[in-house]
């Protein structure tokens, strides 16, 4: 557990201002790819993906001057690793009133790692409706994919070692905005080189 570690081996890789700039860029890219904000639905993956989705929606409103529907999609019941841990509590799934059929759904998550969460999200969405297209936006891509999945929009690529942990903090949930890495930095740098 990270709480057992000394603060010394935790380092900040993105601060609040950097996160804000990254999200603004991602918002621009989403609008550009979709050629406007029409038909875009942002679905955040709880917990922090939902806050990030809201932050992106605010920026799209600033750019395009219109509201983009934001929802949440809990993937717990679709995970492939359920039997490796005690049963988890479910998190809210809220699909915007107009649904997702024929929309461009942008899944929003904080960290892209193995890709298994996104695989589960695609399955979950399959039971809810049939979007015209599905895209993926993440704040951090830390590598180590185990499935053929890639992000369409990335806030920052951060090479890591598997022994490290990436912590995303968002002010609505954690009190401040930051991306932290804890664990054996040396291993990560060695791998990055």
């Amino acid at each position: 557990m990270s709480s057992a570690r000394t603060p010394d081996d935790t380092r900040t890789v993105l601060d609040g201002a950097e996160i804000a700039r990254a999200l603004t860029r991602v918002a621009h890219e989403i609008v550009e790819r979709a050629k406007g904000a029409d038909d875009i639905v942002l679905l955040g993956i709880p917990t922090r993906g939902v806050f990030l989705a809201r932050l992106i929606a605010e920026r799209i409103r600033a750019i395009e001057g219109r509201e983009v529907p934001v929802g949440s999609l809990d993937v717990t019941m679709y995970r492939d690793d359920l039997r490796r841990a005690p049963a988890r509590a479910l998190l809210p799934t809220q699909i915007p009133a107009d649904g997702i059929d024929d929309k461009i759904v942008v899944l929003v998550d904080d960290v892209l790692y193995s890709g298994r969460t996104i695989r589960a999200a695609l399955d979950a969405m399959n039971d809810i409706g049939r979007p015209r297209a599905v895209q993926l936006a993440v704040l951090v891509d830390r590598g180590h994919r185990e499935l053929p999945i890639r992000a369409d929009f990335v806030g920052k690529n951060i090479p890591t070692s598997k022994s490290e942990k990436v912590h995303v903090r968002v002010s609505e949930h954690d009190g401040d905005d930051a991306v932290l890495i804890s664990g054996h930095a040396g291993a990560a740098e060695a791998e990055a080189r």
Partner: peptide
């Protein structure tokens, strides 16, 4: 049924719902 069967059997740890966020899934 989900809470009894959905997870690993036995063990009563705090469900770590933030696995995905901290990137320690799988």
């Amino acid at each position: 049924l989900y809470l009894l069967l959905g997870g690993a059997q036995l063990g009563t740890g705090e469900p770590d719902t933030d696995d995905a966020d901290t990137g320690v899934e799988a």
